[in-house]
Write a protein that binds this DNA or RNA. Structure first.
Length: 646
RNA sequence: GCCGGCGUAGCUCAGUGGCAGAGCAGCUGAUUCGUAAUCAGCAGGUCGCGGGUUCAAAUCCCAUCGCCGGCUCCA
């Protein structure tokens, strides 16, 4: 091929001979014409600007703003544009970093005065103006030392700090409308491509995420390839607000908090307590079925024991302590200690293993005040906690059984899930052999189940590797609930042993695991997942008896009594209100069934159930209705839960 | 813990230095009604708590508790 031509291969496999030095956009247009909405490209696997020139044979792929990577580029450019707008309004602001994130982008600024809501509106207007100007993004490369001088002159000390830590001799800068930023790129061809954006909030954030550093002001925003995408996202936010468990907890009268009692302490009202009761009895039965034994440990344990376990050294700032009769006690933040004491209460043989101890253990952790969040982050909570003490050989099977347990339970609640294996962190204890064995047990168990997983390199606990299960709710949000953790440290520290076949003492392995995680957090997630409209098996009130007029009150009371006897969680609305009013109230309370009682029902001795979705069921006897509800519950729980809460 | 915002009736909220308000819920009465709000009347507040400024504070200032959005940390 002549020296002034190159061969370009396109995504669809087509090839063209083009002049050397042609721009990426020129090459793309030669193949597919203009106006395809490309904002950047991948050339030989590398993301580049459309203005990049091609000097060698290449494979290229045009990227549009609606694709995953393209959207990220759009948002990243949006953050640059926002920074330009901020610098225009606040010239003294120093810029830090401004990446694209999952649902948008942000940029951190160091300013004397924090931004206000009004500032946000002004900045938004500034962005709109820059967009209308269609300013080109220019890339230029510079020696690192030169770039340091450049940003020093401009007083951008954060950029200088970043540059000093880079090892590359050359760095790239991007400029649009006089705003220059240190950046790898790529970026939009010009600012006019930012068509749908919105600034969402402003918040403090530590420089480089370290709480010892200065707090910067972070502006969050989002951007989409078109107005429709933005609208959908704003609708998603609205839907999330509508489902907020804190709002629904109040509306459905499930739980509350009060500063009189203290931050992070849940008060369960009757319906919330009923929900928990249902979850707990479900859990107890499921654990017993799987060979777990239920135990109950004390809340206060002597501080000396927490010293031995290592909690006093590593976890003290999160613990509550109390002293009585000159004896110091720690309030348990975890349940494992009592379980180990139970293990040690007698000599154990390999025949006793695996020992699976389950406790609905209520723990207290002094979480920092700023992290508390409804039911999702509290200071007193109850874990569905179990510790499995087994031989190293049994580990694989035990892990696999726990995974099955998690999958079955998540299926019943209707959650999808992702699994992640977290491996040995830098700061850790235990022998390589132990880590190797435990990690391969975790991986082997997951792979044996054919479950896809990701690896969190170095994300494990200091005492062992773990599997984290992140469940995905109805809005596709992810929540960390279940976790399975291997531990070699505590068996060592507490000198747990078992007598093997060989008559010798051996060291067992301990698995810490939770299925739902914490009852509080799981309940919060459940509320949002179902938007408060719990399936009948979980609904704290399954049916409400409503009369058309006072004339049917006596009959309604006998129906109510009968259904309650049969185990249906039923309420009676005997108020002197119109039927429509009572129906509305029951709908708002998201009660699955409304049993309408009018003269027709009294005459027939039956009830007319109306379902929450508005469907009208056939008239039936109370007994038939109870059987109907029981059947629905059993079906939803794969035969595990019928009527009644035990 | 840190940055910012907020705290008024059971709930949702209005009130920005001069007599504390609305809707819903509650109570009383009327109404006896067929699938998402019947009508009328009544009652309800130490304006989170504690200090201060002022003739006068829900309103301004300080401190504190709590909540909200983030950061950091986590089930």
């Amino acid at each position: 091929m002549s020296s002034d031509k190159i061969q370009v291969t396109f995504e669809d496999g087509r090839q063209s001979i083009l002049p050397r030095g042609i721009s990426v956009s020129g090459a793309l247009e030669s193949a597919a014409g203009s106006g395809n909405g490309w904002i950047a490209a991948r050339v030989n696997g590398k993301l580049v600007d459309l203005a990049t020139t091609l000097e060698e044979d290449a494979t290229i792929e045009g990227l549009t703003a609606d694709s995953g990577v393209g959207l990220e580029i759009l948002r990243h450019s949006a953050s640059h544009i926002m920074a330009q707008a901020v610098k225009g309004l606040f010239p003294e602001a120093k810029v830090a970093i401004g990446p694209a994130i999952e649902n948008g982008f942000y940029y951190d600024f160091d300013v004397d005065r924090p931004f206000t809501e009004e500032d946000l509106a002004r900045i938004e207007a500034g962005i709109a103006k820059i967009v209308s100007q269609r300013l080109a993004f220019h890339r230029r490369e510079m020696a690192r030392e030169e770039a340091i001088k450049f940003f020093e002159q401009r007083g951008e000390t954060y950029k200088v700090e970043l540059l000093r830590e880079l090892s590359e001799p050359k760095v790239s800068l991007y400029e649009q409308g006089g705003f220059v930023d240190l950046c790898r790129g790529p970026h939009l061809p010009h600012t006019g491509h930012l068509k749908a954006f919105k600034l969402t909030s402003v918040a403090g954030a530590y420089w480089r995420g370290d709480e010892r550093n200065r707090m910067l002001q972070r502006i969050y925003g989002t951007a989409f390839s078109d107005a429709k995408g933005l609208k959908q996202y704003l609708h998603f936010l609205e839907e999330a607000r509508r489902r907020d468990h804190r709002r629904l907890g109040k509306e459905l009268d499930l739980f509350s908090f009060t500063d009189e009692i203290g931050a992070g302490m849940v008060i369960y009202h009757p319906k919330g307590a009923m929900l928990r009761q249902i979850l707990e009895s479900f859990e107890k039965r499921e654990h017993l079925r799987r060979g777990y034994q239920i135990v109950i440990g004390p809340t206060l344990l002597k501080t000396d024991l927490w010293k031995r376990s290592g909690h006093f050294d590593h976890y003290r700032e999160n613990m509550y302590f109390t002293e009585i009769d000159e004896q110091s006690y720690g309030i348990k933040p975890m349940n494992c200690l009592a379980h180990m004491i139970i293990y040690k209460s007698k000599l154990r043989s390999y025949r006793d293993l695996p020992l699976r101890l389950f406790e609905l253990g209520t723990v207290h952790r002094h979480e920092k005040s700023g992290v508390l969040h409804g039911l999702l982050r509290v200071r007193q909570f109850t874990q569905d906690d179990a510790h499995i003490i087994c031989t190293p050989e049994q580990l694989h099977q035990e892990i696999q059984d726990i995974i099955d347990f998690v999958i079955e339970v998540m299926g019943i609640f209707g959650f999808a899930y992702d699994m992640e294996i977290s491996t040995r962190p830098e700061k850790s204890i235990g022998s390589d052999e132990d880590w190797e064995r435990a990690t391969s047990a975790l991986i082997g168990a997951i792979e044996g189940k054919g479950i896809p997983y990701t690896i969190g390199e170095g994300e494990g606990a200091f005492y062992g590797p773990k599997i984290d299960v992140k469940l995905r709710d109805a809005l596709d949000r992810r929540w960390q609930c279940a976790t399975i953790q291997c531990d070699f440290t505590l068996p060592e520290r507490f000198d747990l042993t078992y007598v093997g076949v060989d008559g010798e003492r051996h060291r067992p392995v301990m698995v810490h695991r939770v299925i739902l995680g914490a009852m509080e957090r799981f309940l919060g997630v459940l509320i949002e997942h179902f938007a408060g409209a719990f399936p009948t098996w979980l609904a704290p009130v399954q049916a409400v008896v409503v009369t058309v007029s006072d004339g049917q009150l006596e009959f309604a009371r006998t129906i109510f009594d009968q259904l309650r006897d049969l185990g249906v969680r039923v309420e009676l609305d005997d108020r002197n209100e119109k039927l429509g009013y009572k129906i509305r109230e029951a709908q708002v309370q998201k009660i699955p069934y409304m049993l309408v009682i009018g003269d027709r029902e009294v005459a027939a001795g039956q009830v007319s159930p109306r379902r929450r979705d508005g469907a009208q069921l056939e008239m039936m006897s109370p007994r038939e209705f109870a059987a109907f509800v029981a059947e629905e519950c059993l079906e939803a729980t794969r035969g595990k839960v019928g009527l009644g809460i035990t």
